[in-house]
Simulated assay, not measured.
Amino acid sequence: MSQPANFSAEHASRLRLMAFDVDGVLTNGDLYFTPNGDEIKVFSSLDGHGLKMLQEAGVIVAIITGRKSAMVERRAENLGIRHLYQGVHDKRAVMRELRTSLDLASEHTGYMGDDVVDLPILRACGFSATVADGHEFVREHVDYIATKGGGRGAVREVCDFILSAQGKLEPMLRQYLQT
């Protein structure tokens, strides 16, 4: 069971860097291959806008993933995500290096993953999150469990949660009401 929401919000309020896994988080985890062997991934536009809003609010966004895909590179470029790490076997080590290069303490970092291989990095960050359909064991060890599944708005939900915890969500949303 995750911590109470106020515990999670306290951790999310301190974030200056939020990193995400891809398969099962930014996508639903299904792997599609064409007859030529090309990989196809489906991303949520809701999640994409949430990532852009995080960046606009001053939170650095990174992708740290175990697989390597040209589709992920294209998506990161499209969203303006400069910190992209693919084909990573030790995600915690990459986070440590990124944190050091950005001069951030671990309590100012967060990660969203969905499977047990993500637990070392999830536990090394000040804020951890998973998707509703993440592995049960992972859901037992994170600060925040999204109500939505991977690739289906879970990332947007977490982005909104972080922005809300930092007092930035409502002002950002209000700008869309102005004519």
Rank of each mutant, 00 (worst) to 15 (best):
I145H: 01
E157G: 12
A132L: 08
H83E: 11
K41R: 07
E73G: 14
E157K: 06
A132N: 06
F7S: 09
V72R: 03
G80Y: 10
P120D: 06
M71L: 12
A105N: 15
L15R: 02
V72I: 07
R123D: 08
L15M: 06
L98C: 08
T147I: 12
E97W: 11
H108T: 12
Y85S: 09
K168M: 11
V61E: 02
A124R: 00
F20V: 01
G80T: 07
L26Q: 04
V22L: 04
R74N: 08
R96A: 14
M53N: 08
L17W: 03
S69P: 03
G37N: 04
S44H: 11
A129V: 01
M71V: 13
D21C: 05
L102W: 05
G50I: 01
V59P: 02
K148G: 06
V142L: 00
S106K: 09
A12I: 00
E73N: 09
F161G: 04
L119W: 03
N6L: 14
P35K: 09
E39L: 05
M172E: 11
T179G: 14
D143Q: 05
L15D: 04
R139K: 15
T130H: 02
R152S: 11
C159P: 00
F43C: 03
E10K: 08
F20Y: 13
R92S: 13
H49L: 14
R152N: 13
T100R: 14
I121S: 01
